[in-house]
């Protein structure tokens, strides 16, 4: 997702990471009990995972996250007026890239004089499941996170 952000940064496309709650808390990254701890975890996300986009924190009660469906790793695209034009219950950089390219093309078509009317579409997208990488993340969180994930599924 950093690459998508960089790719479109000069085309009036902003990109942020919105920090929510710990989906798989472990011994190394416990569940959140304070904003101070949430800031620490968000800085660790930046430093360990190399997130280069601006990281913004939700409130401790997850007011924003809950209002938008509270999925653990979803992505949304908003227009300047605050209207969602894309929402996905999981994050896939290719899916987001396609959506941005489409939206930019709509702008170009409008500039060319075409009359454009919005419509709704639903589509099933597909993402790569990298279980090895996912488990590395769980192990980083702590043995408890690995054990609980294995027991849950």
């Amino acid at each position: 997702m950093n690459a998508v952000a960089d790719k479109y940064a000069d085309q009036e496309i902003g990109s942020i990471f919105l920090y929510t709650h710990e989906a798989h808390p472990g011994e190394n990254y416990l569940h959140l009990t304070s904003m101070e701890q949430k800031f620490e975890h968000a800085r660790a996300l930046r430093d360990v995972y190399g997130v280069t986009r601006p990281i913004l924190l939700d409130a401790l009660d997850g007011a924003c996250h809950r209002a938008y469906g509270s999925m653990p790793n979803m992505s949304w695209i908003f227009n300047r007026a605050g209207m969602p034009v894309y929402k996905s219950d999981w994050t896939d950089s290719l899916s987001v890239d396609y959506a941005i390219r489409y939206l930019l093309e709509v702008g170009e078509r409008r500039s060319d004089g075409q009359r454009m009317a919005p419509f709704n579409v639903e589509r099933m997208d597909y993402r790569v499941q990298d279980r090895e990488d996912f488990y590395k993340g769980l192990e980083r969180n702590g043995p408890k996170a690995v054990r609980e994930f294995d027991e849950a599924f």
Binding site: V48, F78, G82
Partner: peptide, 29 residues
Amino acid sequence: LWDLEENETSLSAIWSQNAYTIVEFGSFT
């Protein structure tokens, strides 16, 4: 919302800065 320097902002302040804004929700874990 709050940035990493602990300054308060808002989702609307973010989305109003660009034609489109991508928002990825998530956490360290």
